[in-house]
C-alpha cells in the first residue's frame, strides 16, 4: 500500500498508527522526526534524545517490530504502522523481566540511556533469547551510557534472559 500522507492545510499531516497497541490518529505539523512526534505531540517523554544523530541509541523504539532510531526517522514513515515505545513495555504493576532485572542489578544510574538500553536489550532477546556476554555487548553496541554503567546493564540483560525462560 503506497503511503500518501494526508496533508491538511499547508503544513499539517494526519499520522495514524498503532502506538503501544492502541490506534491513535493525530493531525500535527509534518516534516519532523518520529522523536518529535512522540515527545512534543504525544508527550511521551520516555523516549530520550541524546545525540540526535544516531550515535547514542537513547531514542530507540520499535517501528513495525524493528529497533529503530526515532531521531533518524521521518515521522510520516510511522504512519500506517506500529510503534512501540518504552511506555508500552510492561506496567508499573507488571514490569517486563528486563525492566525488573535493570532495577535489581542496578543497571540504572542517571537514567537517560535506560529506555534505549531496554529497547536494544529486548531487540537482542527477541532474536537471540540466550545471548552470551559478548553477544549482549554486540547487541547494545549502538547504545551509549555516559555514566559508563555497562557492566551492570550487561548483567541485567543476562539475568532477564534467564528469567524470561
Amino acid at each position: 500500500m503506497a503511503k500518501t500522507t494526508e496533508t491538511i492545510g499547508e503544513h499539517h499531516v494526519r499520522i495514524e498508527l498503532k502506538l503501544n497497541g492502541k490506534p491513535v490518529s493525530h493531525v500535527v505539523n509534518g516534516g519532523r522526526r518520529l522523536i518529535d512526534f512522540l515527545r512534543d505531540d504525544l508527550h511521551l517523554y520516555g523516549t530520550k534524545e541524546g545525540c540526535g544523530e544516531g550515535e547514542c541509541g537513547s531514542c530507540t523504539v520499535f517501528l513495525n517490530g524493528t529497533a529503530t532510531l526515532a531521531c533518524l526517522t521521518p515521522m510520516e514513515r510511522a504512519s500506517g504502522g506500529e510503534v512501540q515505545t518504552i511506555e508500552g513495555i510492561g506496567t508499573a504493576e507488571n514490569l517486563d523481566p528486563l525492566q525488573w532485572a535493570m532495577m535489581e542489578e542496578a543497571g540504572v544510574q542517571c537514567g537517560i540511556c535506560t529506555p534505549g538500553m531496554i529497547m536494544a536489550g529486548l531487540d537482542l532477546l527477541k532474536h537471540n533469547p540466550h545471548p552470551t556476554r559478548d553477544e549482549i555487548i554486540q547487541g547494545i553496541a549502538g547504545n551509549l551510557c555516559r555514566c559508563t554503567g555497562y557492566q551492570k546493564i550487561i548483567t541485567a540483560i543476562q539475568r532477564a534472559a534467564e528469567t524470561r525462560t
Binding site: 503506497a2 500522507t5 503544513h11 499531516v13 509534518g30 519532523r32
Partner: peptide, 10 residues
C-alpha cells in the same frame, strides 16, 4: 521543519 512533504511509494 526538515522538509515540507513526504511520500512513500511502493
Amino acid at each position: 521543519m526538515l522538509y515540507q512533504s513526504y511520500c512513500a511509494p511502493d
